[in-house]
């Protein structure tokens, strides 16, 4: 059992790390497209075709890929002043509930967006423009980022429940109340 759990954790960590790196590269690419478009227009009267569309689409990856990593470091912002006085067990329960709420909300979005993908692939749907960029690939990345987040949230729920039972937080340095 614990072997499985630690395998789950290490695979998840690896994927989160990878997603973070990809998001960083994509962000650099976004700026590159904008800059190249400006230079291309000034120097050769040729801006990058479909630059607005591409930059917008790439932004989806920049936002969604790091979501799981942010959750791992307990970075998703919450209000803590109202509950700081609670004992660790109660805070564990709240943490589990908060992660559950995140999983329902983001999981719902990811599921619905991914659901449209097969139809779009079948129809060959693409965004109007010079490059005829297909609609589905960014939705696939969106779905992947959300899936990763949900997997991480499951682990947060488990950690919260553990704290609620044992009264111990496995990594209190990360929690707001510790400061």
């Amino acid at each position: 059992m614990s072997v499985l759990v630690s395998a789950y954790q290490s695979v998840l960590r690896g994927l989160e790390q990878m997603s973070l790196v990809i998001a960083g590269i994509v962000l650099l690419g976004m700026g590159g497209i904008m800059t190249a478009s400006v230079l291309g227009k000034e120097l050769f009267l040729r801006p990058v075709p479909d630059d607005l569309l591409m930059v917008g689409l790439l932004n989806v990856a920049v936002i969604v890929l790091p979501l799981a990593y942010v959750e791992r470091t307990r970075g998703h912002i919450a209000v803590s002043v109202t509950t700081d006085w609670l004992p660790p067990r109660a805070l564990g329960a709240l943490r589990a509930f908060g992660a559950f709420a995140m999983a329902i909300f983001f999981g719902g979005i990811g599921f619905m967006v991914s659901l449209r993908m097969p139809g779009e692939i079948a129809k060959g749907a693409y965004y109007d423009g010079a490059l005829q960029i297909p609609t589905w690939p960014m939705k696939a990345i969106f779905g992947f980022g959300i899936l990763l987040l949900v997997l991480r949230l499951l682990s947060s729920i488990a950690a919260g429940v553990t704290t609620a039972i044992t009264g111990r937080d496995e990594d209190p340095s990360l929690s707001e109340g510790a400061h």
């Binding site: 478009s37 227009k41 009267l45 040729r46 801006p47 479909d50 630059d51 607005l52 569309l53 109007d128 010079a130």
Partner: peptide, 19 residues
């Protein structure tokens, strides 16, 4: 946008997309 891109580029203009 659209069909006006080739119509302008065909005569030496540059086109950009701005919302």
């Amino acid at each position: 946008t659209g069909a006006f891109v080739p119509a302008i580029e065909g005569f030496g203009g540059a086109t950009v997309s701005v919302s």
